[in-house]
Amino acid sequence: MITLRPASERGTANFGWLDSKHSFSFGSYYDPEHMGFSALRVINDDSVDPGAGFATHGHRDMEIISYVLEGSIAHKDSEGNVEVLPAGEFQLMSAGSGITHSEYNASKTEPLKFLQIWIQPNTLGNTPGYQQKNFGQAIGLTTIATPTGENDTLHIKQNATLSQLILAPHSEQTYTIAAGRKVYVHQVAGELKVESQRLAAGDGVKITERQTITFKNELDDQSTALLFDLP
Rank of each mutant, 00 (worst) to 15 (best):
S171A: 13
K113C: 05
E103D: 08
T212S: 09
T142K: 06
Y130S: 06
H22V: 03
Q132G: 08
F24A: 07
E89R: 06
K182Q: 14
Q131R: 11
L167N: 07
L92T: 06
K113V: 07
T153F: 02
A55M: 08
I177L: 07
T224E: 13
S25P: 11
E209K: 13
D49T: 15
E150L: 03
D203M: 03
K206Q: 06
L199W: 04
W118R: 06
I156R: 04
E150A: 14
R5E: 07
Y30P: 00
Q132K: 15
V188K: 01
T146M: 06
V205E: 02
D46T: 13
E33Q: 15
Q91C: 07
F114S: 07
L124Y: 14
Q173I: 10
L141A: 06
A225P: 03
P32G: 10
A52F: 13
F54H: 00
W17Y: 12
W118H: 08
Q164N: 07
V82R: 12
G149S: 11
G190L: 06
M35R: 14
D229I: 06
L112V: 05
I119M: 04
T12Y: 05
A179F: 05
L165R: 00
G36D: 13
Q120T: 12
T212F: 01
H155T: 04
Q116A: 08
W118S: 03
Y130D: 01
N126S: 14
H170W: 09
L167R: 09
A39Y: 05
S78C: 12
S97I: 06
I177V: 14
A13C: 01
P32S: 15
L141W: 01
P231M: 03
T148N: 15
I119T: 02
T142V: 11
G36M: 11
I207K: 03
N151S: 15
Q197V: 14
F37E: 09
Q116H: 12
F228R: 01
Q120N: 12
L92I: 08
G140Y: 04
V84N: 12
T224L: 13
V68W: 01
E209G: 07
F37Y: 15
S25C: 12
T212V: 12
S163Y: 00
A189P: 01
F114P: 02
S78E: 13
S97A: 15
G204P: 01
D49Q: 15
M35I: 14
L69S: 06
Y184S: 00
I43F: 10
S23A: 15
E150C: 03
F24K: 02
L165M: 13
S171K: 13
Q222A: 09
N105A: 07
Q173P: 00
T176G: 02
S72P: 07
T153H: 02
Y130T: 10
P128M: 08
D77K: 13
E150W: 00
G125S: 13
E63C: 10
T153V: 06
D221W: 00
L162W: 00
F37K: 04
R198H: 05
S171M: 08
E191G: 04
N105T: 10
F135A: 03
A52E: 15
S223N: 11
M62Q: 11
A13H: 03
Q211F: 05
I156L: 08
E195S: 13
